[in-house]
Design a protein around this nucleic acid. Structure first.
Lengths: 196, 196, 196, 196
DNA sequence: TATGAATGAGAATTCATTCAT
DNA sequence: GATGAATGAATTCTCATTCAT
């Protein structure tokens, strides 16, 4: 059972992670100092070390929190969707929207993706959760005959990569195309490929 | 005309970049120090600064060299290819092979992609070259009716992202599938999407 | 109102400046490293940077402190003096005494004077204060007819230079003449020149 | 007897010193690198070390040359002067003129004057020569009754300091007063002091 | 002799982490 | 628990000096 102390501790950790996210978004992961995070969180630097063992642990935990929230949102969004295409469209839209709304987090998300960094997204537990979710959808869709038979992992990776890079380019573009347009493009690309 | 000095200088720069690549591969871009590079290259730290103005310039130049060599290889590989599909297949195969052979470079390639890092692949001149090459192919293929009409940039981004992430996963996997299998998968995914 | 923190901070800065002064006295301004100052102050190098932004700021601040204290002392010494000659004598005596007592500071004072160095005494705010003080005295004395009419700035410069160089030679001499003797000489030289 | 080699060596040293003077004038003494001097002299860095043992030796030798030339000029200028006042005026004029014409050298001269630097003007042989010259003049003038009895060294120091600081201020001023005006001021100050 | 590439000790500065209050 | 001053290892970059050619 959770004691009051546990709750307080959890709350503190959460605050610090939220602060970390805002700072990472502003300065990029490698330029964030522990002092930056402490300032943003409104606590002393020493306090940080009561709740986390190291700078790395803060960032890692921050990622987890952030990704988990996206994963939840995606799960919720697709409850009630019928076919794979509908589900996919919902997910793509939700994910693009999420990042359009949280550019901060996207910088973190990408920083995480630094694939051979100490903390690699690809091997990061919450990225795994994201990928598992997708793999389950793919597997089911194959079973239902909506998707052709192929390596489930490769399919999921590919789907994820297309969505991610389209979002990335939206971020870079000064005036990205309307949401609908990119959602449609992504779903089309994923479903039908490029062949005419 | 190149004097002997120019040749020597070029050779030195090349050696240092090669050393840099190996070290980046080992430690990740952000953790590489100038001393690491010097040690790997077997020269003194000061020597590095004879040939490069700053740590950043070394890394930047290293990227350029590495990417340029891949772009050349891809260009050469597709000379004589007839349709888009054949070209794509050739490119995918060449690219996967290249990274299977140069795991070091792949880490660098990915480090470059750190999208909001100081040196962003997306904005890096040689990445642009890579993308332009792809865009030209796509545009021509659309003109020939081999690819359906769609935003050329989005198409290219998506194609590139699929290839990249498949390679990335090959790198992570202890025993990646045979080359042919991934080439076939990628080409299929890109051409036909996932629909059955 | 000053909080306790402000007081502590001020005290630390003062300690570091005092350490800096001793080290400059020993090694000369250009050869002083931040490490030297830290060692002399008995703190870690990093600590220095809590209180000062850069090596230059330490040295600059050290100068200011030191010169300001001399300027104050000179101002105080001459309160109540009647004619210019009396004032001059008081100032010369006070200044020579001050440097006889603070040989450390004299080296700093001279290092400051390095005229084309990054921090030039001639342009340094506290040197300007010193010179202004002198100029005011000269101007008043001219108005009272105690000093002949002449360019006030040139007069002040010349007076200052004579005092300074006599002190400088006292510093170099193993056994300088008694204080009174040099005071008398300087005042005489300034008032009557060398003519018989 | 001087062999041809000696002459060549002397010539090389001279060239390097002249280059050094120009560079010191431009960048200030502490910012001059051996490479700067080599570039200015049009020789390789290594060549410098054939003729000088260290950076310090170059600078020291440069000072000596430069000061010696001033001392010679002053000696020559006063040949044939009759009284002390005439001699003094000639010297002051010559010295101001010399520095007006050689601002480069003045920066060097001042850099030398850094009194407790490794190479102190005050103890530097050629500065001693300059001072001795002045002391001889003063002593003779006292003997002839043109100057009042006083410590010869102190008198010389004071005279030198006044001349030096007036020149220094000319250097700093954007539009210094006409030569004659400063010559007259300096001679008057030295001869009669400031009293009315 | 002349060269200039190579060296490496050392400089200023930053920042994760510790610990006395 | 909370604080933030203190620490010092680590980093980038400079430059006097050496030495093989």
């Amino acid at each position: 059972m959770k004691t009051k102390e546990d709750v307080v501790e959890e709350f503190r950790k959460q605050s610090i992670c939220e602060a970390a996210m805002r700072v990472v978004a502003r300065k990029g992961m490698k330029d964030v100092t522990v002092q930056d995070i402490a300032d943003e969180a409104g606590v002393a630097k020493g306090t940080i070390y009561i709740y986390f063992d190291s700078r790395d642990e803060i960032l890692s935990r921050t990622m987890e929190n952030a990704t988990a929230s996206l994963v939840d949102k995606l799960g919720a969004a697709c409850r009630g969707c019928l076919g794979f295409r509908e589900t996919l469209e919902k997910r793509v839209r939700t994910q693009i929207q999420h990042f359009d709304d949280n550019r901060d987090f996207f910088r973190l998300y990408l920083a995480m993706a630094e694939p051979f960094g100490e903390r690699r997204l690809k091997q990061h537990p919450t990225y795994q959760t994201y990928l598992s979710q997708l793999q389950r959808l793919v597997r089911d869709a194959i079973a239902r005959g909506e998707i052709r038979e192929a390596n489930v992992e490769r399919l999921s990776i590919s789907i994820a990569s297309v969505i991610r890079d389209i979002i990335l380019h939206r971020m870079i573009e000064r005036e990205p195309p309307p949401l609908d347009s990119d959602v449609e493009f992504a779903v089309d690309f994923i479903m039908r490929g490029i062949a005419s």
